[in-house]
């Protein structure tokens, strides 16, 4: 009996510890919470009301900053990194593209179109060309050339059809596969479902294409760092295999 009780106690400890952690929050009390409130206020939660929603990556960053600060002050969970995503230079992206691995772009909107056009150009020998995004010339000619065996673009039906027509040559040669999400015709409503910011998966790393993260001439790309990056890579590798089978399915339907 005593043995069983002991086993139970040992077994329950971690769960109880979690409850203890949660119970520190003092969900119902007032006086004790005043202290907490002042701690939370030191994290400047009012900044949430001043976010610039035209720049989604800044919104994400702002929300993360407040959440991280609140976590640290109220729950003493302070080990989180300064930021989840760090800026990556255009040179780094070009380096990733020249690593000779498959490339995938997921998302919808003008960013995906700009990226796809760039990929279309470099895949099908369009030569050196600068493409502008929002009036800012962001793409330069890759210095060491670019080696991409195949590129996949997953986007909404409308953008997919547009890109397939625009990048006919690369698609015909089988270098570029455009996978449409949703029905046969355009589905702009998808942008509410697919993450608005496009993701570029290249050279074993994921990059978030984030116009407006800062001034466009400084950086436009965000990427996870270190051990986070490995985990993202694990998921993205799997995603690529699913997209490959989706593109095969698309052929089957045709």
């Amino acid at each position: 009996m005593r043995k069983a009780f002991l086993t139970l106690l040992v077994a329950l400890t971690p769960a109880l510890a979690q409850f203890d952690w949660l119970s520190n929050l003092d969900w119902g009390g007032i006086s004790n919470n005043l202290n907490k409130v002042s701690q939370v206020l030191s994290c400047d939660p009012s900044s949430l009301a001043q976010l610039d929603f035209s720049q989604p990556s800044l919104v994400l960053r702002g929300v993360y900053r407040v959440t991280k600060c609140v976590l640290c002050t109220t729950l003493k969970m302070c080990g989180l990194p300064d930021d989840m995503l760090y800026p990556a230079s255009w040179g780094e992206i070009q380096g990733a593209l020249s690593r000779g691995q498959e490339v995938m772009v997921v998302g919808s909107g003008a960013g995906v179109e700009a990226l796809a056009r760039y990929l279309g150009l470099i895949l099908h020998g369009g030569g050196c060309q600068n493409i502008s995004y929002g009036g800012v010339p962001i793409y330069t000619c890759p210095p060491g050339g670019i080696r991409i065996p195949k590129a996949y673009i997953v986007t909404d039906g409308k953008t997919a059809r547009k890109l397939e027509a625009e990048l006919k040559e690369a698609v015909k040669e089988g270098l570029l596969k455009v996978v449409a999400v949703g029905g046969e015709r355009d589905a702009p409503e998808l942008s509410g479902v697919i993450l608005g910011l496009p993701i570029l998966w290249a050279g074993g790393k994921g990059y978030l294409f984030a116009p407006g993260y800062s001034t466009p001439d400084r950086w436009l790309w965000l990427t996870p760092d270190g051990p986070v990056s490995n985990k993202v890579a694990l998921v993205m590798r799997l995603a690529t295999s699913y997209v490959v089978s989706a593109s095969r399915r698309q052929e089957e339907v045709k």
């Binding site: 003493k76 989180l80 985990k231």
Partner: peptide, 8 residues
């Protein structure tokens, strides 16, 4: 018990 964040 204290929580320590682990990547990711």
């Amino acid at each position: 018990a204290q929580p320590l964040g682990v990547p990711p």
